[in-house]
Nucleic acid binder design. Structure first.
Length: 192
DNA sequence: GCCTATCGTGATG
DNA sequence: CATCACGATAGGC
């Protein structure tokens, strides 16, 4: 079970951290993940939810939970399998076809937001170096700062930070270089 | 390999 | 506020 090839993402920026994040765990083709969603987002219908957290579980769920807890110190974390499942089914449930647009709620500094916005423009099967990304943002010398912001992406896959590689081929990834390579290989292949 | 330019963040006072 | 150390970098030597 994995994300549909043509999934579209819509970024919504939050003015403050979410009061409540509803989370649950999923089993995917690339391992277990923790997903956090918020609802509703401004201007959307009552039952509309947006993804705000998507982390791989690399060791165990407690560790992953603690990491999310640390990242969102002001937010309440509610276990809510039902609400998460609504989004998870849209994302992972279908097969190759998926016309649903997935809202992603992000919160961060202006700089971070601009980095994350630039990330979603990198197409599936493509990669981009840190300096290329910095250049695209019109901040060619802020390479190191861009890398910091990339590393802080909280929504794996949907905000595709795994598509950023360093120029010398080094491939660092929050959840390990091996997984990163697997994701990239998967995206480059035609076998979905 | 080591040295340095670069810049947003978070910690600290 | 001011300062400092720290990166998922990159380029020069």
């Amino acid at each position: 079970m994995w994300i549909a090839q043509n999934t579209q993402v819509r970024l919504v920026t939050l003015k403050e951290p979410p009061k409540t994040i509803r989370f649950s765990f999923l089993t995917t083709k690339f391992g277990q993940m923790m997903m956090g969603v918020i609802k509703p987002i401004a201007g959307d219908s009552e039952d509309q939810v947006a993804v705000t957290v998507l982390h791989f579980v690399d060791e165990n769920i407690v560790r992953t939970y603690n990491e999310v807890r640390k990242r969102w110190p002001k937010s309440e974390l509610w276990k809510d399998d039902k609400t998460v499942k609504l989004v998870a089914d849209k994302l992972f449930g279908g097969d190759k076809e998926n016309s649903e647009e997935i809202p992603i709620a992000i919160f961060g500094s202006d700089f971070q937001l601009s980095v994350w916005r630039a990330l979603v423009d990198i197409k599936r099967g493509e990669t981009c170096t840190y300096s290329q990304l910095a250049e695209r943002m019109g901040r060619p010398t802020a390479v190191r700062a861009v890398a910091n912001a990339v590393a802080r992406n909280d929504v794996a896959i949907l905000i595709p930070c795994h598509r950023i590689v360093s120029q010398n081929g080094d491939s660092k990834f929050h959840w390990g270089p091996v997984l990163k390579q697997q994701l990239l290989a998967h995206e480059k292949s035609e076998n979905y």
